[in-house]
Lab assay of single mutants.
Amino acid sequence: MIVFVRFNSSHGFPVEVDSDTSIFQLKEVVAKRQGVPADQLRVIFAGKELRNDWTVQNCDLDQQSIVHIVQRPWRKGQEMNATGGDDPRNAAGGCEREPQSLTRVDLSSSVLPGDSVGLAVILHTDSRKDSPPAGSPAGRSIYNSFYVYCKGPCQRVQPGKLRVQCSTCRQATLTLTQGPSCWDDVLIPNRMSGECQSPHCPGTSAEFFFKCGAHPTSDKETSVALHLIATNSRNITCITCTDVRSPVLVFQCNSRHVICLDCFHLYCVTRLNDRQFVHDPQLGYSLPCVAGCPNSLIKELHHFRILGEEQYNRYQQYGAEECVLQMGGVLCPRPGCGAGLLPEPDQRKVTCEGGNGLGCGFAFCRECKEAYHEGECSAVFEASGTTTQAYRVDERAAEQARWEAASKETIKKTTKPCPRCHVPVEKNGGCMHMKCPQPQCRLEWCWNCGCEWNRVCMGDHWFDV
């Protein structure tokens, strides 16, 4: 396979590697080409510095992935760790964990309700045991953590790749202090920090972006993250068709209702045909949960890209028209025109101005929308079919299609509260000796007794199943 190397943020060049090629071997190839010592090179990928003893497969490097290699003399205490030698983080029983690669970060837990604080980093599902597709590297999971809308060759929703760059020099040479644990960490600028490894760059702020994971991409090709779309790892039924499908869209209502993408497309087109989208002054033209839940309008309007190009163009047109109407304007009634106009409040005669090729020149009556006339309008008909009709959803289907309910059931079956801080902690095999993952707590306690870890627990039921 081919990976592209950008040395000291210059133009990239291809390097041929195998899945079992080590990072140090990659350094040696680059060092020979650039005429520099291999031990002064640092390989940066997806916000993480890659260790010498890791392989291309370990690092989730795919065909035509772009890695950054910078030349920086080692500072005291760094060289041993980078070589894969006596790194205290690798000691058996050590409590410190390697910062998780962005290629394996899962933010789907952050669609849980606000009262489930902490689960994004504490609760991990076991539903990723799908067998890898044919042709994928051994052991590589097909679980997708992110979804994007690819405006490039795909023109559809695709699995996405999370990447990070330095907000100062805009190069992907920043190593994160810690990985993101929720969508806010990724979507809110300057929320996460790190250290830029580019020479002479003092940058410390992280800037995240997404790429389409279905095809090789260049540095400049980015895609918009659709953070309401998630892999259906909890096997929730769709609120409309009641099938279990994946991926799904999880509405931001209190129940976190789930809808499959085909039904979401149908829901949007139906509402669009009836012009029953909601115009929100802050958000724009949007839709609420299909069950009509309060405070559930979709905030990231790129989710409506699921409509496809033709329907999305209609959505944008109707949204612009609705904006004009909300501002007190009118639409030209001549067939084939429909231009938005903003006449004076007491102006009865409205002319669709033909300047700049935008208007048709038609003069019409503001009251009856017919060709302009003197005197009273002959008839004014009330528009028919403008009443909002509820999208029919079966109550039982709505009850079963809740992301929140599956989460709470998982928590109930696989977790116990920490005796000190009461945060839910998952036990997935292993011994009875637990350690609270909350940095402010870190209590060592017994899963069996529910009390602080002691010699009695150690001698009596340390390794009970």
Rank of each mutant, 00 (worst) to 15 (best):
Q252C: 07
R366D: 03
R334S: 08
S246F: 02
A92G: 05
R170A: 10
G355H: 12
H265D: 08
K32H: 14
R455P: 15
R89G: 14
G47W: 01
R89W: 13
F4H: 10
V465Y: 15
P14E: 03
E404F: 08
I306N: 02
G355C: 09
G135I: 13
P99H: 13
D62V: 13
Q78L: 14
D184C: 03
F209L: 14
E195D: 08
C289A: 00
F4W: 13
L123P: 15
A363Y: 08
G359C: 10
N90Y: 13
T55V: 06
V67S: 00
F210N: 00
W453Y: 00
C260D: 00
F251A: 02
S116C: 06
G319A: 09
P281L: 08
R392N: 09
D346C: 08
Q252V: 04
G77V: 12
I239Y: 06
G12H: 08
S65T: 05
V43M: 04
V278N: 06
N81C: 15
H200P: 05
D130A: 13
L50F: 01
Y312E: 03
G359D: 08
K220V: 12
I259C: 05
D464F: 15
I142M: 12
D60I: 06
N356F: 12
T270V: 12
S65K: 05
D53Q: 07
L102D: 11
H461G: 01
K129N: 12
L331M: 05
S181L: 06
C166S: 02
N144Q: 10
C263K: 00
W403K: 03
E404M: 11
A134R: 11
I298A: 01
S286W: 01
S116G: 13
P73H: 07
N254D: 14
S233I: 09
L297Q: 05
R163G: 15
E309F: 10
Q25N: 08
H373S: 02
V465S: 06
Q276F: 06
C337H: 03
V70L: 05
A401C: 08
K369M: 10
V330P: 03
R402C: 10
Q71T: 09
Q158T: 14
V425E: 11
F381R: 08
T21K: 04
L41V: 01
T83A: 12
C289D: 00
W462V: 04
Q178W: 05
C337D: 03
A398N: 10
C150E: 00
K369F: 13
F45P: 00
